[in-house]
Structures are given as structure tokens and as C-alpha cells.
Design a protein around this nucleic acid. Structure first.
Lengths: 212, 212
DNA sequence: TAGCACTCATTGTTCAACAAACATAGACGG
DNA sequence: CCGTCTATGTTTGTTGAACAATGAGTGCTA
């Protein structure tokens, strides 16, 4: 684990950075050599990533980068609705981590001005992780973070990083503002509608890309 | 993985059956010999179980059966509140899987009559998994199932299987009935109160057992 | 008794090997 | 021409042995 958790992190970074494309086959011997670890150590990391949903493992056929289908996208948005909305709705007013949401919005705006869409995507993920952090639940945050990472693979799959995220920066901002001014319940309502729109947009991109 | 997923299952079975006690150290060589697999294969299984929260891994100190602290119990109940209540509240009326809930209640009643408390616990887990299955979300069900398994370890830790589950069979039944008659929203409310009581009871058991 | 060095056991990791499953290409027959 | 079957090569699944690195326990010393 000394190296192992570091290996998992290195693999995760390359996955969500899009260097390993969704659906791409991950050869054990090739990757082991590339990361300068043994096959056995790499396989341990694969099990972790598989459990997190970032990687798909089929017995005797090896692992490949997860390539979410439309069904997966729908499933992921179901999780988002339940988790994000419930957490936000029941969050106390003035939760300390609200500043995390605001910081994420600012970061997204900054990167958007630079047209650095990959970092905009990262800031967007951070925003929604911040929302879930209002639950003060380590497990909820962990599971949710995995699901969001999987969703990023969905974005990478249909290659629409840029215009897909840009319109939603403002809506993130709106959610925080409503949370501040009108409270959690109103903010949760806004967020629910937001997620619905987001889901439609991703599914639209899938349809255009002709993906399943 | 051919053997591996089977190995994970075998380990999981023994964990939630209480044959491996919470906090118990799991020696690699000993367990490998016991399950007749190599150390490397066992370590792969350990990574999966670690990611599921059933096992705790500390670098250079090996893995041990998860031994949830009171903080963990609180965290787990936070997840339960958010997930179970949100799913039930937004479930459609007459969801097909409602029969799963009813079947779980019947099973629990049957085992309770036999005073088979371990199976009562299993039926109780099945009930709550059934609730979450109303979300039609594979990921939500999977994550939630892991959390419930971890909670079972908490029960095992303080050794109060019997009287802890018995009183709640009736409340499971009540939740289904309200769901049938008054609908999801009313049922979710009942369930929320139920979970609050359940949490208090578990934390009480922890306090009595003098556990952290 | 507190600190310290030493020893021993366990984990972390690698390597080489082999069986088993799979994928591919070419031969064969309809 | 097309589908099926077989042979071959590749990849994964799994093992056992080996060694380094870390941690835990022990007994010594002051």
C-alpha cells in the first residue's frame, strides 16, 4: 500500500485526465512496465479501481477504462438526484463547507475566462463534492466522489468538455446564492431542476455521438 | 477473478456471519492457507473488501475486520437517512419491488418466531436493501448494500443481535403498509423516525458496551 | 522505570512459471 | 461466398518462492 495507494492515485489521475480513453483496454504487462510495478501490484490497484467503477473488469478478458452507457448515465444521475438534493435540502443553514461551494464557483469562473475547460470540469466536480460534504458524512462523500469520477469518463467518452460545462457555472452560483438567501430547501429545488437539465444535455450529447 | 469473486464472496459471508470478529487481525499467510489460495490472490480480495468498508487496511500492519466506532455508526446512519428516505419519498406508488419489502417482512417474522436472530438480521438487511431498490439505481443499491454490511459488523461488535432487531420488524411492516395506503411521502416520514430510533438504540448499545 | 538496540514476524513487492481462457487466422466443407 | 472448425498465439488467473522494508516484541542498560 505504500506504493499501492500512490499507484491507485496515479492511475486515477490519468483516467480522469482523459489520457486513458473510455473503453480502452488496459494490458497488464504493458501498464505494469509503464508504471514500473509488477503485474501483481498492478492487479491489486485494478481491483480498487474496479470497485470504484472507474474500470471494468471482465474475467479472462482483462480490464478496460469504464465506458458508461446511456443506461449508466441515467443511473448516475439518479444517484446525483437522491444524494445531492437530499443532502442540500437537509443541510443546516450556514454550514461551514458552503465556502467550499463558493470557492469552486470562483475557480470555475477563473478557468472559464481562460477557456481551460478541463479545469472548469474539475472545478465543477469540486462544487458538487462540496455540496455533498454538507452532509458531514465521510461515506456519502466517498461514494459520491466515485460516481462523479465515473461521470467524468462519460463526458470524455462523448468529447464535449467545453460547451457542456460552461452554461452550468452560473447555475452552480445560483444554487449557492439561493442557499445563502432563501435556505437549503429552496436551493435543493433549484439543484434538482439543474440536474435534470444537465442530464438531458449529457444524454443529448450521447445521442448525437451515436453512443449506446 | 474466476476464483477471486468467489473468494470475495466467501470472505464476505464469513464476515457478516460473524465468524471473523470485528477488529480481528487477518493474517495473510494464515487466511491464504485456510482458503487454499495464494497470498497474492488473497491480497486482491482484500483490496475489494477494503474498498467496500468491510475490512480496514493499515500499511505495513495488515488488514483487520472493520470495527466501526460510534463515529462510524453515526456516519452510517447519516447515509441511511439520506439514501433510504430520499429513495422512498420519491418512489412511485406501486413500485414492483414493494413485494420485496413485504417478502422481507414475512421472512423476518418467520425467523423471529423461531428465535433465529441472525436470520432476522439478514431479513432486516434485505428489507432495507429492498427499500433502496425502489430507486432502480444499480449504483445506489451497491453502495448502500456495502454500508449495511458494515453496519452489521457494528451489531456484531457490541453483540446484541437478538433484542436489537426484534422490535423493528413491526416498524418495517408499518413502513410498507403506509407506503401502500398513504403513499411514499408518508412512508418516508415514518421511516425517518424509525431510523432515528434505530440509531439511538445502537448508540445506546455501544455506550453500554463501553465502546468508542 | 525509561529508553534503546536487537531480533523476529509480517507485510510489500517482485519475478518466473504454468494452466486456462480467449482471440485470431487459416483450412475446410457446404 | 459464407459459415464452421481447428490450430496457434496471446493474455489473464494463479501460484510459490524470494527478498526488502517496516513494525512489534524482547531484553538489556542506565
Amino acid at each position: 500500500m505504500n506504493h499501492d495507494s500512490s499507484l491507485v492515485n496515479r492511475l486515477t489521475d490519468r483516467l480522469i485526465a482523459g489520457e486513458l480513453r473510455p473503453g480502452e483496454r488496459l494490458s497488464e504487462t504493458a501498464l505494469a512496465k509503464e508504471f514500473d510495478v509488477s503485474r501483481n501490484t498492478l492487479r491489486e490497484a485494478f481491483r480498487v479501481l474496479g470497485e470504484q467503477g472507474l474500470v471494468t473488469h471482465i474475467p479472462h478478458r482483462g480490464v478496460s477504462v469504464a465506458s458508461p452507457s446511456t443506461a449508466d448515465v441515467v443511473d448516475i444521475y439518479r444517484v446525483r438526484h437522491h444524494v445531492e438534493c437530499s443532502v442540500l435540502e437537509h443541510a443546516p443553514r450556514n454550514h461551514p463547507n458552503a465556502v467550499r461551494m463558493e470557492a469552486a464557483v470562483e475557480a470555475a469562473e477563473k478557468f472559464a475566462a481562460e477557456e481551460n475547460w478541463l479545469e472548469v470540469g474539475t472545478a465543477n466536480m469540486e462544487f458538487h463534492n462540496a455540496v455533498v460534504s454538507l452532509s458531514d458524512s465521510r461515506r456519502l462523500m466517498q461514494s459520491f466522489s466515485n460516481v462523479l469520477a465515473e461521470l467524468r469518463l462519460a463526458f470524455l467518452k462523448v468529447e464535449v468538455l467545453d460547451f457542456l460545462h460552461a452554461p452550468f457555472i452560473g447555475r452552480n452560483k445560483e444554487v449557492v446564492e439561493i442557499y445563502r438567501t432563501e435556505g437549503p430547501v429552496a436551493a435543493a429545488k433549484i439543484l434538482g431542476a439543474y440536474l435534470g437539465d444537465s442530464e438531458r444535455q449529457v444524454l443529448g450529447a450521447y445521442a448525437r455521438a451515436g453512443q449506446d
